[in-house]
Simulated scan of single mutants.
Amino acid sequence: MPCQTCGDATSPAFNECQRCGTPLGQPAVSPGVPTYAVRGLGTAAAIAVGAASVLYLPSALFPVVGVRVARAAAEQADRDLLMGAAVAELLLVLPYLLAFLTAAVLVIIWTWRVRKNLEAFPGALPTMGPGWAIAGWLVPFANFVVPARVVANVARDSLWRRSTPGLVGLWWAAWLVFTFGERVVSRLDDQRYTRLTEWPRSDAEFQTYVRYYQDAIGPRLIPTAACLVAGVTLIVLIRRISAAQQDRIARAAPAWPVAPGWPGAPAGYAVGYPTQPVTGPSPQVASDPTVASPQVPPGAGGTIGA
């Protein structure tokens, strides 16, 4: 008997499919358990994650441009150039923050849906409730561990793996490096910025801005690389998990009837059911003539005044 989930041949020596873990005789999706579409949402989440990863680069690598601007300002003794560099860096951060917030909302909703779908998959073994798919991202300290556990569980049961895919570990390690690295870099930048002269007048004071941007380049390379790795691996995970779950849900979808005239509808079919061929006029069924009740002549005294 083939498995209804993955199609592999099953053996009566085992109680479940050796590839996907579905118990023998069980459908791909348990009847009556609601499921959620994740392909479209997964695509939107992947696009948002990619946009956030790309938009992070200009603000993270801005010190490379800032060094040149600071040198030009020192040569011309132009404080307006330094002010323009600070404003430009701020403007580059805004699109990234917008994309990051959008990606965060979509990823949280996607995580909840793919975790909720596991409850409809026979053979799946969820280890954490679906509420943690949302709370795990928001609760302090728990957000260092819980999201990785939820996604690892979803990846195992969606991609038919006995162990957690290595891509999950790579994604979460890169995400933690980016999260902590970004905080450390931001704190170092704030400390160096407070030592700058607010209104430089001499060449030495202008050179402090040059060194400020030079010192900021190296530390920012680590979170930048981690951001790219985390973004790419998360996109791959979202697309693989979404495709696997959507294909499994589609196996349990009923074959809806096709209306006549629609593409793929065979001739002589209406709403999915064959119509009876008409070979001639319908025979007329003879009916007995209606028998009227006999009229009884009025008797004497039957009329007033008679």
Score class of each variant (00 low, 15 high):
residue 193 Y to C: 00
residue 2 P to R: 14
residue 61 L to F: 06
residue 198 E to F: 12
residue 122 P to S: 09
residue 132 W to D: 05
residue 97 L to H: 00
residue 26 Q to M: 15
residue 283 P to L: 12
residue 25 G to L: 06
residue 266 P to T: 03
residue 250 A to C: 06
residue 32 G to R: 04
residue 273 Y to P: 01
residue 72 A to C: 02
residue 224 T to C: 05
residue 75 E to M: 09
residue 152 A to C: 02
residue 256 W to H: 12
residue 159 L to W: 05
residue 166 G to K: 08
residue 286 A to G: 13
residue 47 I to S: 11
residue 75 E to C: 02
residue 198 E to D: 13
residue 124 A to Y: 05
residue 1 M to V: 10
residue 239 R to K: 11
residue 80 D to P: 00
residue 81 L to P: 01
residue 119 E to T: 08
residue 146 V to T: 14
residue 145 V to H: 07
residue 156 R to F: 09
residue 125 L to P: 01
residue 220 R to L: 01
residue 75 E to H: 11
residue 51 A to D: 07
residue 301 G to A: 08
residue 288 D to T: 14
residue 122 P to Y: 10
residue 124 A to S: 15
residue 192 R to C: 06
residue 215 D to R: 14
residue 95 P to D: 01
residue 124 A to R: 02
residue 223 P to K: 00
residue 234 L to W: 08
residue 122 P to G: 07
residue 300 A to T: 10
residue 179 T to H: 13
residue 290 T to V: 15
residue 95 P to R: 01
residue 26 Q to L: 10
residue 206 F to V: 00
residue 102 T to M: 07
residue 59 S to P: 02
residue 287 S to I: 12
residue 305 G to L: 11
residue 137 W to P: 04
residue 53 S to Q: 04
residue 136 G to H: 07
residue 147 P to I: 04
residue 134 I to D: 06
residue 231 G to N: 03
residue 158 S to I: 03
residue 57 L to E: 02
residue 61 L to Q: 01
residue 219 P to F: 04
residue 103 A to S: 15
residue 9 A to P: 07
residue 97 L to P: 00
residue 2 P to F: 13
residue 162 R to K: 13
residue 7 G to M: 07
residue 188 L to F: 12
residue 46 A to F: 03
residue 174 A to P: 04
residue 49 V to Y: 08
residue 81 L to E: 10
residue 222 I to R: 02
residue 273 Y to E: 14
residue 217 I to N: 09
residue 209 Y to M: 05
residue 33 V to G: 08
residue 300 A to E: 12
residue 252 A to V: 04
residue 270 A to F: 12
residue 137 W to R: 06
residue 38 V to T: 10
residue 156 R to E: 15
residue 29 V to I: 15
residue 173 A to K: 07
residue 24 L to Q: 13
residue 193 Y to D: 07
residue 141 F to E: 06
residue 239 R to V: 10
residue 49 V to F: 09
residue 191 Q to E: 14
residue 5 T to P: 02
residue 102 T to D: 03
residue 236 V to Q: 11
residue 91 L to N: 01
residue 146 V to A: 14
residue 93 V to K: 07
residue 19 R to Y: 12
residue 105 V to Y: 10
residue 216 A to K: 03
residue 181 G to R: 02
residue 60 A to T: 03
residue 306 A to L: 11
residue 289 P to E: 13
residue 99 A to G: 00
residue 153 N to I: 00
residue 139 V to C: 07
residue 231 G to I: 01
residue 245 Q to K: 02
residue 89 E to V: 00
residue 162 R to G: 14
residue 129 G to A: 08
residue 204 A to E: 13
residue 157 D to P: 03
residue 251 R to L: 15
residue 258 V to D: 07
residue 206 F to S: 00
residue 254 P to R: 08
residue 198 E to M: 11
residue 116 K to T: 13
residue 130 P to Y: 07
residue 135 A to W: 15
residue 150 V to Q: 11
residue 101 L to M: 08
residue 172 W to L: 03
residue 130 P to W: 11
